[in-house]
Design a protein around this nucleic acid. Sequence first.
DNA 1: TCCACTCCTGACCAAAGCAGTCAGGAAAGT
DNA 2: ACTTTCCTGACTGCTTTGGTCAGGAGTGGA
Lengths: 151, 151
Amino acid sequence: MRVSAKADYAVRAAAELAAAGEGPVKGERLAEAQDIPLQFLEHILLELKHAGIVRARRGAKGGYWLARPADDITIAEVVRAVEGPIAHVQSSPPESIEYRGNAVHLQEVWIAVRASLRQVVEQVTLADLVSGELPPVVEHLTGSPDAWVAR
Amino acid sequence: MRVSAKADYAVRAAAELAAAGEGPVKGERLAEAQDIPLQFLEHILLELKHAGIVRARRGAKGGYWLARPADDITIAEVVRAVEGPIAHVQSSPPESIEYRGNAVHLQEVWIAVRASLRQVVEQVTLADLVSGELPPVVEHLTGSPDAWVAR
DNA sequence: TCCACTCCTGACCAAAGCAGTCAGGAAAGT
DNA sequence: ACTTTCCTGACTGCTTTGGTCAGGAGTGGA
């Protein structure tokens, strides 16, 4: 249950693009702004492009930009583009797993886990992220001090 | 963001122990009941033992049982025992990561992700799991039909 | 036309994690 | 003693992660 470096990088780069607005931004600038290895980042941006989240142009004056407005792209989309489906169990989606015996209701638990995850990650857009005005659901969750302590 | 086979197995075995009540249950019986490779399961049970979740006795009439009442053990505990901390980013806890530039608020998002995850996984006990009477939070999340569709 | 610049793509790589298996040892009961 | 069951470490094959390297291809400017 962890977020990979790749997903983290992808969201950070996307945030940087969201903040940049219209003009194309060079990969190198993104890499510097977020301190991400350039060559690795290029692969990530390529995946984002294939997913239809960013566009790109080559050559001088080239670079990357968002394919759609920043308030229309959620973090979930970005993460899925590079990590595939969120919240799989044993690499299959929870709704397709059949549990036996005393574990039959475990499926519902994993479904709930996925739903709660989605609730935050599908709610926050890139625009929210750069502005810092996160949706109420998220504010509420981060509000409690013990959301901030490890366990 | 996936649940490993190990964590899934651990919870299933724990559910089986919760249902069994007092008497020690052989590893073999657990393995059969939940269709888990025996030798792998033994390693898992050992970790659960070290975490203080189960107890065990060897020899004839030996087996495993829960160290505490089933309504006092959450799924979170079981998962943590075998997978370590839930919801890390790049293998460090979200509260210890410093983001720069336009990604500064990403930390709050990951914190919220973790909190929402905890909300379900720390709420459901083994007793809930075997009885099928899941806490309201979970029922609410699984209630919506689109919690059950993949994306 | 040619060149510099930037993205695009595939191949490769080391290290770590995952999902187990194997072999044997150590307690408990009979 | 002997069987049963847990306990433990070592090992293994495979996949994923987090990159790097090398070169190709489109774009704009001189």
